[in-house]
Amino acid sequence: MNSHPEISSYIKQKNPSRVLLRYLTAIPEDIRDSVNKILKISNPNPATLKQLIELTSDINSKTGSNPLDNKGIIELIKNSGIKDAVKKLRRMRMPKTNKIISEINNEIKNIELKVLKIDFDQSFESRGLTLSADISSLKDAELLKEELNDITASGVLERIIKKYKMGD
């Protein structure tokens, strides 16, 4: 780390975890150079820095390129902060999963439900969807029955379940 003075100084200042230190040592040199540059313009907490490095490393493993070289990321850090850059990297890191989440959310939005609520575990580890409703009158209950009927009969519920379970 001697050739990366910002990183050395960060380590002295923050005394980060062994895991973060291992990431800093393990990553390729060009990514370490980028992290050094970022630490000139930002002073993230170790947890955020670890997320940034880990996401960058994963994208680098997949694509071979260094996403921190992207001027957009550096500008984002300068203008909105490193957490927004981490969010962007997270979207880049999980494109397929994010696409499925977005498609399911769009399906739910398009149904325009008044009483019924459809939720799902965005890690996809649960078995299926969670349907819930807040009922404060018989009218609500009738509406719930109607909405359940609609989403079942129209096939939209089946579609959402299939997308949740199978990804397509």
Binding site: R22, Y23, T25, A26, I27, P28, I31, S57, D58, I59, N60, S61, K62, T63, G64, R93, M94, P95, K96, T97, I100, S123, F124, E125, Y164, K165, M166, G167, D168
Partner: peptide
């Protein structure tokens, strides 16, 4: 990462952290 110059192709795939602490491919 430490044994492979900081990158390995299969680490770039999408993984979810499961409740047992292990990272796995998404269930679908």
């Amino acid at each position: 990462l430490e044994n492979n110059n900081g990158k390995k192709w299969f680490l770039g795939e999408e993984y979810i952290k499961c409740e047992d602490g292990k990272f796995r491919y998404p269930k679908f």
